[in-house]
Design a protein around this nucleic acid. Structure first.
Lengths: 149, 149
DNA sequence: CTAGGTGCAAAAGGTTTGCGGTTAA
DNA sequence: TTAACCGCAAACCTTTTGCACCTAG
């Protein structure tokens, strides 16, 4: 049972990052929207409901800062707008073309995402990004797409 | 020994695709620039040397069409401009921050890129994209970056 | 108090599109 | 012949930036 208390990380605890109200709101929105993997614009919409004065540029700035601080992750799928993800575990992203949603996909027990690749010796991976596309087969739209009438 | 005669794929053989001079030039440029993983702009520069009348929009259109036909692959690393790749084998891309190059990374013998992920049952992968970032450790710049004076 | 963050508006960069003329099949 | 494609320029969308004001520490 993973910790569900991610609604509001203790203020001022992002590795010495100066915690402004805007950054807190942006982080909280992302934690609340959690598995929706919202884009910057989508974060902006919800953030503006909670803090009407916030600007889109600030949302971008906050997302970049939080990403740099390692508090969140940026997710790029194709050329679409970046999405953001509060899940810090190593995982892949699966974009379902049926329901237009993004799912986090964890590693199989004991699996290692880098050992399957024939890396030239000396290569040092600092970051790996795995994005999949397909149909999830469980959502209503996908069942239809899969021919379950 | 893989077939190296990729300089110019027989005209009109991209799965029934209408083969225009522009598409042929774009494909040839990509095949020639091969492992450089050029961006659309870079393809445009070389294509224009061979066919001065070609336009950037056409290069984009051709790259998109060729990608759709499965003749080439589009490679997205972070938010940078898309790169294109004539290598149709399953492989990952490694971007070296030291020498600013992109390398193709093949799978280890017998490895399977999807089986390491704990996919919900019913999930059907149609496409997988693996991008890594780091230092390759072999180019001069990387050796410097790695502290080899 | 002040370094750093914010809001705004404008710019940048990559990519797509609309349209009249052109061309492969 | 003609549906599909090209070249051009303008539009589009996401993201970044410059600058004056504001605020957390």
């Amino acid at each position: 049972m993973a910790d569900q208390m991610t609604v509001s990380k203790a203020s001022g605890d992002f590795g010495g990052l100066r915690m402004t109200k805007q950054r807190q709101v942006v982080y909280d929105v992302l934690a609340d929207l959690g598995p929706k993997h919202p884009t910057a614009s989508e974060v902006f919409v919800t953030a503006k409901e909670r803090m009407p004065s916030i600007s889109l540029a600030t949302v971008y700035n906050c997302l970049e800062t939080l990403t740099g601080a390692g508090a969140i992750k940026q997710v790029n799928i194709d050329r679409e707008a970046s999405r953001y993800c509060p899940n810090l575990q190593p995982h892949a992203h699966f974009y379902c073309t049926g329901c237009d949603q993004v799912f986090d996909i964890g590693l199989e027990k004991g699996a290692d995402a880098s050992s399957i690749w024939a890396l030239p010796s000396g290569c040092l991976i600092e970051e790996m990004n795995v994005a999949m596309k397909g149909v999830c087969g469980t959502c209503p739209k996908c069942r239809t797409a899969n021919g379950h009438s």
